[in-house]
């Protein structure tokens, strides 16, 4: 994703929801901005975007995002069934005298249009959500997507948000959705580094393992932030040590963080001694990514 010009993309993800992805990603963007770096913040959690609550951006522009789905011309369709064979999502199927579509299942891959021998498929637009651009605290470029209520197709919208990755020498921080399914994978895919936020609980550990496996399949460097590090047990640390996943930062559970969060303020700004640690975290990530790039370049 990053070019030779030094652009870096860091995705902040987690298997488990509610571990602090948004808190960490916005804090990281803020830290980078304070250091004078050129930073862009993308909220790819299109099903539940919330970075804007903390970054308080002045939104400048917004528009609808649509995907193209097939429309069957029943005069031309011969019910040959080719479209149904190529569709992996049952969004188009031939039964009876012609093809029928289920637009809400369509991933807009284009396969059915290509294989239709009768030129019987037209194109119609289906709105899936909104994209908004603006500037957050201190002028940080901020872009987020939000899917239409009831919409299950988040991935094409996430791709649109990712079009705003800074490929011109800057740093991009991505707030990814939780979990390890398509939206999470699409959000972190192509990043230079994935920062996995977890908590030291059995749930945190279980979902961290899934997330670590996901980034390994994608071949991306990763590290862990343990949030609320003084609750729960030691098993997340033991797992990270055994798997060679670096724990880059531990953040204690602190009432001041919860209070700031409830007011919609950047939560970690309530802990003044964390500022240096966040700056170090950013430094560590940049060092890891530059090393892995050198290794890749030497190969």
């Amino acid at each position: 994703m990053s070019g030779k010009n030094g652009s870096i993309t860091i995705a902040v993800a987690s298997g488990k929801g509610g571990t602090g992805k948004t808190t960490v990603s916005t804090a990281l963007a803020r830290a980078a901005h304070k250091e004078g770096r050129k930073v862009t913040m993308l909220d790819c959690d299109v099903e539940e975007p919330n970075s804007h609550i903390f970054l308080k951006p002045r939104m400048e522009d917004k528009w609808q995002v649509s995907i193209t789905v097939p429309e069957v011309n029943k005069e031309k369709c011969t019910a040959c069934g080719e479209c149904g064979k190529i569709c992996a999502f049952s969004a188009i199927i031939v039964l009876g005298e012609s093809a029928m579509t289920f637009p809400e299942l369509c991933h807009s891959c284009g396969g059915c249009w290509k294989v239709c021998p009768e030129d019987a498929l037209g194109e119609i637009k289906r709105e899936i959500g909104m994209l908004r651009t603006g500037k957050g605290l201190g002028g940080i470029p901020f872009i987020y997507g939000s899917v239409r209520i009831g919409e299950a197709m988040g991935v094409p919208l996430i791709r649109q948000v990712k079009e705003y990755i800074d490929r011109d020498g800057g740093l991009t921080i991505i707030d990814a959705p939780p979990g390890t399914s398509c939206p999470a994978i699409e959000s972190v895919r192509g990043s230079d580094f994935v920062l996995l936020v977890t908590e030291p609980t059995p749930f945190g550990l279980n979902d961290l393992k899934l997330a670590v496996e996901m980034v390994r399949v994608l071949g991306i460097e990763s590290g862990v932030v343990i949030n609320r590090c003084d609750v729960g047990d030691n098993k997340v640390r033991e797992y990270c040590a055994a798997e060679g996943v670096p724990v880059l930062l531990e953040i204690p559970d602190d009432r001041r963080v919860a209070e700031a969060y409830s007011r919609g303020e950047l939560p970690f700004e309530a802990l003044p001694d964390l500022e240096k640690k966040l700056s170090d975290l950013l430094g560590d990530i940049l060092e890891i990514t530059s090393k892995s790039k050198e290794t890749a370049a030497n190969k």
Partner: peptide, 8 residues
């Protein structure tokens, strides 16, 4: 997704 369609 699409289990009902495939069963159909």
């Amino acid at each position: 997704q699409g289990a009902g369609i495939q069963s159909g």
